[in-house]
């Protein structure tokens, strides 16, 4: 499956947020969408799921124009893990995960079938929420809730997975757990993944290609090595940084430089910026 975005412009109430965006994503890829606050990352995600109608341009999922697809059709192929949805907290994890079977429900099917339950079970097992399946969503920690959201998305058996800041508000254990899982799914099952990320280092480490948005336009598109250079980051984020490569993966790693360090006031031995 291929996602193809052509000359997309869209926004709210006639005010454009995104302008003339074009790129495509193959199903075997993990693509990260990065950019400063307000650069249009979430807006792009909303356009991809038909919540927002394009003002101009077109979006194709597998050569199907998005406006010609029914919501149900889209949900059979594309699953979304939202950042912080206001869920009904009186649901058990299992009932919530079973919601993922919704787009695959046959007409006049009243109860979940055996197959639905098996798929839900598998999704819960993959995400590690099987042991808390009877607990209420309201009683889960932030990390557990995110895993439950991911399990529900997987229960949709999507060909494409869209995640809006999956690592926000989580400790590093959960951050790495979720991103590793996403990558495993991508490598093993060929699931296409689009991640909206704030943390540039995670984006660098886990994504095959990055889409850098700046002021609603596509600023750079390419592998992390090409996008995450200190010139580009300083230009877009207006922050002084140092970029080195991660000694283990060889991917770019971004170091911040504080104001104090820039002025050279702090006298620490590791001060030298080369």
């Amino acid at each position: 499956m291929i996602l193809d975005i052509q000359n997309l412009s869209c926004g709210y109430n006639g005010k454009p947020v995104l302008r003339e965006i074009s790129f495509s994503v193959q199903s075997g890829e993990i693509v990260g969408i990065i950019g400063p606050n307000g650069s249009g990352k979430t807006t792009l995600l909303r356009a991809l799921t038909k919540i927002l109608k394009p003002d101009q341009g077109q979006i194709f999922w597998d050569r199907n124009e998005i406006n010609k697809m029914k919501f149900r059709e889209l949900a059979q192929k594309v699953a979304v893990v939202s950042q912080n949805p206001a869920l009904d907290l009186n649901l058990t994890v299992e009932d919530f995960v079973l919601f993922g079977r919704f787009p695959h429900r046959r007409h006049f099917q009243f109860l979940e079938g055996q197959r639905d339950k098996e798929i839900a079970e598998k999704a819960m097992e993959l995400t590690g929420v099987l042991k808390i399946r009877e607990r209420m969503l309201g009683n889960l920690s932030g990390g557990e809730r995110k895993l439950a959201l991911l399990a529900r998305a997987l229960c949709q058996e999507p060909e494409f997975l869209l995640l809006d800041e999956p690592t926000a508000h989580l400790d590093i254990t959960h951050q790495v757990e979720i991103l590793d899982l996403v990558r495993r799914l991508n490598r093993r099952e060929g699931m296409g993944v689009i991640l909206v990320l704030h943390d540039l280092n995670y984006a660098s480490e886990y994504c095959d290609r990055l889409v850098l948005l700046h002021g609603g336009r596509l600023y750079r598109l390419g592998p992390p090595e090409e996008v995450l250079t200190y010139q580009i980051i300083e230009e877009v984020y207006r922050t002084t940084v140092v970029v080195r490569s991660n000694p283990i993966s060889g991917r770019p790693f971004i170091f911040l430089v504080s104001e104090e360090e820039k002025r050279g006031k702090r006298s620490s031995p590791a001060k030298k910026r080369t």
Binding site: I51, Q76, D88, F99, F102, P103
Partner: peptide, 10 residues
């Protein structure tokens, strides 16, 4: 689950 989540589920 909220309107947006419902949309995501088709």
């Amino acid at each position: 689950l909220g309107e947006e989540e419902a949309l995501h589920l088709g």
